[in-house]
């Protein structure tokens, strides 16, 4: 995985004569040309264009008018935007801690298994939902979460009267969170497993000789050693959950009412249902600022933690 070395390495060999250098430059530019053209046309320029569009009232067809920071000011007072933000945050609070905790627990359990083939079996099974088409499994969960569905059947066995998950404003976000945890915990599990495999075994042996209980070994050896990965998984889940889109669109279409309309869904509807391209771009930038902030925090921490190199 990532280590602290600078991203672009300087060749170790000595400076060559100038014709060699020129040949190297020419060669390099040729090699990066196709990829760089694509990135410039469909990522870098659009970023600039998006900033430009966000200060207009463009509908996508007519001539755009410059409106300054109006869209950003509107966004901060738009009750639908703030309610979309609060739905997103509720979803994040429900899905992220649960998901990280479940994948950490499962990974630690898998890691403690003695039989290697069983580890492979469980890792494979838990990762399965990650290789499916999101819409297909979301449609499946729509069936499972129906008032008379499999989820409520299982809850019934446990003596719990299951709610109308997707049909009630109070339960729709928890329902989406359950689906996301089912679908996404495999990602965290394999990252945790990679990290757990790198914890030196002799630390555990030493602790065992000292009479440490399994939980103490986990608390004082495992957790500190894998803490950078815990943080990484936490940030990745946060970034993913703040952009939740496909799951809500398929499971509940943002409803009932607006009760599961998240920020990403609101941006999508603003742009492609109501064709307010300028306003949607401003909303997208407000979301982007939060997401990029999280990435920067992750990068800062990454270089702070020495343990990171061992992942």
């Amino acid at each position: 995985m990532q280590n602290a070395a600078p991203l672009v390495t300087v060749p170790a060999r000595k400076r060559r004569a100038s014709p060699m250098r020129r040949q190297e430059t020419l060669m390099a530019l040729l090699l990066i040309l196709p990829s760089t053209l694509g990135i410039l046309a469909f990522a870098v320029l659009p970023i600039a264009a998006s900033l430009g569009i966000s200060v207009t009232n463009w509908g996508g067809l007519s001539k755009p008018n410059f409106v300054g920071l109006q869209n950003y000011a509107t966004a901060l007072q738009d009750p639908r935007a703030t309610s979309a933000l609060s739905h997103t945050l509720i979803y994040v609070l429900l899905a992220v801690p649960t998901g990280v905790l479940i994948s950490l627990t499962l990974a630690v359990w898998i890691n403690n298994l003695k039989a290697g083939w069983l580890c492979t079996v469980f890792r494979t099974v838990y990762y399965l939902p990650m290789v499916t088409i999101g819409v297909a499994v979301a449609l499946l969960w729509q069936v499972l979460l129906a008032p008379q569905g499999l989820v409520n059947l299982v809850l019934g066995w446990l003596g719990v009267n299951g709610p109308n998950w997707l049909g009630s404003p109070a339960w729709v976000l928890p329902a989406v969170a359950i689906f996301s945890v089912w679908q996404g915990s495999g990602q965290g599990i394999i990252l945790f497993l990679a990290s757990l495999a790198s914890v030196p075994k002799d630390l555990y042996e030493a602790a065992q000789l000292d009479g440490a209980k399994p939980f103490e070994a986990f608390r004082f050896i495992t957790l500190p050693m894998i803490s950078p990965t815990v943080f990484l998984v936490l940030v990745l889940s946060l970034i993913g959950a703040l952009q939740v889109f496909e799951a809500v669109l398929v499971l509940s279409a943002g409803g009932p009412g607006d009760s599961s309309t998240t920020v990403a869904l609101y941006i999508y509807k603003t742009a492609f249902t109501f064709f307010k391209m300028g306003y949607a771009s401003a909303l997208a930038w407000l979301l982007a600022v939060i997401l990029i902030g999280l990435m920067v925090i992750q990068w800062r921490n990454q270089s702070k933690w020495v343990n990171y190199d061992q992942v």
Partner: peptide, 17 residues
């Protein structure tokens, strides 16, 4: 530029593209 394309969320670029 390549790293930037990884960082920027799709909500930003999808409209101009």
């Amino acid at each position: 530029s390549h790293l930037l394309s990884l960082m920027i969320p799709w909500q930003v670029t999808i409209i101009p593209v």
